[in-house]
Design a protein around this nucleic acid. Structure first.
Lengths: 164, 164
DNA sequence: AAAGTAAGTCAACATGGCTGACGTAAAATC
DNA sequence: GATTTTACGTCAGCCATGTTGACTTACTTT
């Protein structure tokens, strides 16, 4: 009589472990976004603005369509957020050099300051977790999260993350 | 002339690595939620419904206030989603035994079926990533993500995750 | 010259957060 | 036993951020 719930059943162990790791991701993400949200509120910005600021910072001169592809939202959704950032002087648009239809995106000095302010909180949070966990754990974290990225997009995404 | 951008500057390396790991979390979460979202759409449910289904499944008989604390949303926000799930027969409410003010939450058979269907996708996705990354990496993943949980809530959250 | 592409706009709608005010039943306390 | 607190719920309205669909403009490619 094989007890499905027995600790000796590898399939059950596996499912339970997987569920725990899924939940872990939820809690980590929940608390990981809480800090930035607080600062953003002071500026009347939201998480959507943060994402734009982050990716424009990491990819100065990015095109609108590249940004859309990263964020996986519609251009109408992006435009609201992007226009607000441009109007309030956090993001700057410059026509592309080789293709003048493009409007390349850059953070202004103001934008860079805000990015620093927000990302510092997250970096401290991550640094703290890294210190507690140790270098080997960090390597594991990177490996697993990389594997969670959609396979068809993984290479491109990783290239972007590790860029330069 | 110390080059701040030099690869030999540990502070720069550190910041760059931290930023990469932050971005990794964004991409992983983005693609991690895409699968469930697709299924949920067929039921006219959203991510909010999924979260309720998930945590009620993992904590059968959970009280409304415990659920609110996990999700970190207002009861008004929860009620919309919860009422829909109850009305459509995915979640069941039973009065508490010792405290009859409570309405303990349970998944119905229907609810369990949907949960299985959704979580199977995520479990497969995570299992795949785990296989590619290896057991040591998984341990690292768990360590780091645990450390990302808000310190004041960490113990309680981890207890809930690892429960039973 | 025509077709395709990058980006933007307007309008309307859905989801899921939020606040504030108020209600009801049960439990806990004075 | 009366009062206060607690668990939960509702109504109403607002806001942020996602969606679709239709159309325009400027530029590039063919």
């Amino acid at each position: 009589m094989a007890d499905v719930k027995s600790g000796t059943n590898p399939l059950f162990l596996r499912e339970e472990e997987l569920r725990q790791c899924i939940e872990l991701l939820f809690f980590a993400y929940r608390d990981f976004t809480a800090g930035p949200d607080e600062i953003l509120r002071e500026y009347n910005f939201g998480r959507a603005h943060h994402r734009v600021i982050h990716f424009v910072c990491r990819n100065q001169g990015i095109t609108v369509s590249e940004l859309l592809e990263i964020l996986r939202i519609t251009k109408q959704s992006l435009s609201r957020v992007l226009n607000a950032l441009v109007e309030r002087g956090f993001v700057e648009q410059r026509p592309g050099v080789t293709d003048r239809r493009q409007r390349l995106l850059y953070l202004t000095e103001e934008g860079k300051k805000l990015e620093q302010k927000i990302s510092k909180i997250q970096r401290n949070q991550v640094a703290q977790a890294f210190m507690e966990a140790g270098g080997e754990a960090v390597a594991g974290y990177r490996k697993v999260l990389s594997g969670l990225i959609n396979e068809s997009d993984r290479e491109r995404a990783l290239k972007r993350i590790l860029n330069k």
